[in-house]
């Protein structure tokens, strides 16, 4: 769910911008110049993949993939997600410019949390890998929905119903995100075992 312009209050916008700026600064600092093309191209892949619509019953959902971004990139998820969201704000008008800080933070923080919580389990056995990557996909979207709902709620009590609706509406997406993330990570381990669990790429 992309919060449009003119919804969030000034303190929430300012807080989101400050937190995102801090995350971006840290992410850029941890990203050396030799990692830059890798992060850029992976951001491009995630942008393309997030445009895929997956059929779920009669409807369809699109992927967020911030769990996979976090597992692969660590702190560099902040700049990776920021460039994607900025392009979206310019090209599609999803989110908008003033909300960039809030939106980046609510997508990238769950990605970084996934990196610390789930990435260490990717080197264990097959069951641990599948479970950890499912948790990364599911948890990152759940956390992102909760943070989005929180930013709405902090902007005014009136948004409480909408915030609850956002979390409920993203529940089916979360489960699917978990399944896709774990299948994709499983594929990556089979195709290139050296990639996973050895620090951010």
């Amino acid at each position: 769910m992309h919060i449009s312009e003119g919804v969030l209050s000034a303190p929430v916008l300012a807080g989101g911008a400050a937190l995102s700026a801090a995350g971006l600064a840290l992410g850029l600092k941890k990203m050396d110049y030799d990692r830059l093309p890798r992060v850029a191209l992976l951001s491009a892949v995630f942008f393309v993949a997030s445009l895929i619509h997956l059929p779920v019953g009669p409807s369809s959902v699109h992927l967020v993939l911030n769990g996979l971004v976090g597992l692969l990139l660590g702190w560099a998820a902040f700049p990776a997600i920021f460039v994607g969201l900025t392009l979206q704000a310019i090209l599609f008008q999803f989110g908008g410019l003033t909300g960039l800080g809030v939106n980046t933070f609510s997508m990238a923080l769950p990605a970084v949390i996934c990196y610390y919580a789930c990435a260490p389990w990717l080197r264990r056995g097959r069951a641990a890998l599948l479970l950890a990557s499912f948790a990364a996909g599911f948890g990152s979207v759940l956390l992102a929905a909760l943070l989005t709902a929180l930013s709405l709620f902090l902007s005014g009590e009136a948004f409480l119903t909408s915030a609850a609706a956002i979390v409920l509406a993203s529940l089916p997406g979360m489960a699917l995100e978990g399944v896709i993330t774990s299948l994709a990570v499983f594929f990556l381990r089979q195709a290139r075992p050296s990639l996973l669990g050895a620090g951010p790429v």
């Binding site: 890798r38 992976l42 993949a49 195709a191 990639l195």
Partner: peptide, 12 residues
């Protein structure tokens, strides 16, 4: 999911 995995590997 495998399609996404292939894209990740090719981009790397």
């Amino acid at each position: 999911a495998q399609l996404i995995g292939v894209l990740v590997l090719r981009s790397l």
